[in-house]
C-alpha cells in the first residue's frame, strides 16, 4: 500500500508514514479535533453565562449606546480574511511550497494582530468612554471575560503561527535584514532564533493542525459576533 512512500522526490509521500494509523487520520489531527470538540464546551459555557445575564437583566445596560458595530464588523472581516490566508497557507504547505506558506502565514499573523489591536482599542474605548469595567456591572464581567478569553485564544494562535513562520525561515536567514531597535528584536530573536530552519515537509501536518485551531477561533468569533453584538440591535428580543 505504501510502496511509493520511499520515493523522496514526492513531498506528498513524506506524509504517508504519519497516516499509518488505524483510521488513516494522523494522531495530531485527531487530537486537535477532539480538543476543538472540548473547546466548544468551553465557549459554550462562557457564551451561556453572557446570554443568561443578558436575558435576566435586559435593561441594566444598553450596549448599543457604546458598541461600534462598524468596527466589530471590520474585525469580523479581518478574521475571515485571516482564515482564508490560513487555508491557503496550509494548502501551500501541502504542496511543499515553503515560501508561499510563509507568506500566507505572515499575512494571517498580520490580520490576527489587526484583530487584536481592534479589540484593545474597543476595550479601551469601553472602559474610558462608556465606563464599562469588569466590576461596573454583571454585563461588564461577562462581556470582558468572554471576549477576553477569545482574544487570548487569538493571541495564542498568533504566537503559534509565529513559531511556524520562524521555523519556515531558511537556515541561512540573516536577522540583520530586519530593521528596528535592538531591544525590540532581542526578545523576539531569543525566542525564535532556535526555530529557524527547522521546518520540514512532514511539518505540513503541524501547520494544518495550527490552522484548524485558527479557524476554530474564527468560528467562535462568528458566534460571538452574532450572539454578543448583533442581537443587541434587536431591542425587542429577550431571546
Amino acid at each position: 500500500m505504501s510502496s511509493h512512500a520511499a520515493n523522496t522526490d514526492d513531498p506528498h509521500a513524506a506524509l504517508e508514514p504519519l497516516k499509518k494509523t488505524s483510521t488513516g487520520i494522523e494522531n495530531k489531527k485527531l487530537a486537535m479535533w477532539a480538543f476543538l470538540a472540548s473547546d466548544c464546551m468551553f465557549f459554550g459555557t462562557l457564551i451561556s453565562t453572557h446570554l443568561i445575564y443578558r436575558k435576566v437583566y435586559p435593561t441594566v445596560v444598553e450596549p448599543t449606546e457604546f458598541f461600534d458595530i462598524e468596527l466589530t464588523g471590520f474585525s469580523s472581516f479581518i478574521l475571515l480574511m485571516s482564515s482564508l490566508l490560513m487555508a491557503l497557507s496550509v494548502s501551500a504547505a501541502h504542496k511543499g511550497n515553503i515560501a508561499g506558506m510563509r507568506r500566507f502565514l505572515l499575512g494571517t499573523i498580520f490580520f490576527g494582530l489587526i484583530f487584536l489591536s481592534g479589540q484593545v482599542y474597543e476595550f479601551n474605548h469601553f472602559v474610558k468612554d462608556a465606563g464599562l469595567t469588569l466590576s461596573s456591572s454583571v454585563f461588564g464581567s461577562t462581556f470582558y471575560v468572554l471576549t477576553g478569553t477569545h482574544g487570548v485564544h487569538v493571541a495564542l494562535g498568533v504566537l503559534w503561527l509565529s513559531c511556524w513562520t520562524a521555523c519556515s525561515l531558511p537556515k541561512d536567514w540573516a536577522w540583520y535584514t530586519l530593521r528596528g531597535g535592538r531591544f525590540l528584536w532581542l526578545p523576539i530573536r531569543v525566542i525564535f532564533a532556535p526555530m529557524v530552519g527547522r521546518y520540514k515537509h512532514e511539518n505540513a501536518l503541524d501547520v494544518e493542525v495550527a490552522g484548524l485551531y485558527w479557524h476554530f477561533v474564527d468560528i467562535v468569533w462568528i458566534v460571538i459576533f452574532t450572539a454578543v453584538y448583533l442581537v443587541e440591535y434587536l431591542p425587542i428580543l429577550g431571546f
Binding site: S38, D39, M41, F42, G44, T45, L46, T49, I52, Y53, V56, Y57, V60, L134, S135, S137, V138, G140, S141, T142, V145, T149
Partner: peptide
Amino acid sequence: PAITIALVELMFDRHFGTYFFNVEGGGK
C-alpha cells in the same frame, strides 16, 4: 470545560471584582 470556566469565573469574582456569582452586583 464547564468546571474550568466556572472556576475562572469564580476566580475573577474573588480576585478582580466581577459579579458572576455575587448577588450584590446582580450575579446569580
